[in-house]
Nucleic acid binder design. Structure first.
Lengths: 111, 111
DNA sequence: AACTATACTTAGCAATACTAAATACATAGT
DNA sequence: ACTATGTATTTAGTATTGCTAAGTATAGTT
């Protein structure tokens, strides 16, 4: 199967999933990549060039805020992203949209 | 909700849904638009500029073939699209991909 | 010193649903 | 006859977004 179709399906849900993961606690980019990979059984394996632009977009839209960590014990400095109230509300809306959308798709497929 | 998100979710499933509708019988463009609109309860309301390029793509890829109808009783001439064997097999693959994909999305959302 | 893993950044590409307009014909209303 | 409406197809151009690919930087390991 041409990977292009999988790519296209991802459009519109990655932002929703990332907001969902940020709801539990603030996280940094690399962490999000490995969590998504693990939670999806290897389906959502994001490259940095995919994830980081999404995070910048979330921040531009006021759905998340970021802050650099103060590295202790010679840790690498990390940029933590935290979901905002607006982001939480928006995630809920996106999830409702997803449920409606996937419901309709399944209805047509089960014809 | 910004309609952009709905648009993005559609990417990658419209082709699958149109192939699905063509599996029952050959259909013409306008017919597909109204069937999709009706079956989806108003969620998939395609503009011509969305549908026809998809049909041309299906034909280019050998997933469907088209023929002009011979209009009788002063009917308008219509271009009928018929799914090919390759198209049927491909639809099945896309549907499997959709099931896997939407399953993973729901798993993450239900965390 | 070289290599690997971690972590972030960015430039440019590809795919596809969209807007918007044009063409053409049949039929119904005035 | 003229206009508007519904059907039906075509096509030019735009926006979004996930991708490839390369680069920067630091810490720990060999």
């Amino acid at each position: 199967m041409n990977p292009k179709y999988e790519q296209q399906m991802k459009k519109g849900v990655l932002e929703m999933l990332i907001l969902k993961l940020l709801e539990k606690e603030e996280k940094y980019g690399y962490q999000l990549i490995s969590e998504l990979k693990q939670l999806s059984g290897g389906m959502f394996v994001l490259k940095e060039g995919t994830l980081y632009p999404i995070l910048y977009r979330l921040e531009d839209e006021g759905l998340a805020v970021s802050k650099w960590s103060v590295p202790r014990d010679k840790e690498v400095s990390r940029k933590y992203y935290k979901i905002t109230e607006k982001g939480t509300a928006f995630q809920k809306e996106l999830q409702t949209l997803w449920n409606t959308f996937s419901g309709h798709v399944n209805t047509i497929l089960e014809e």
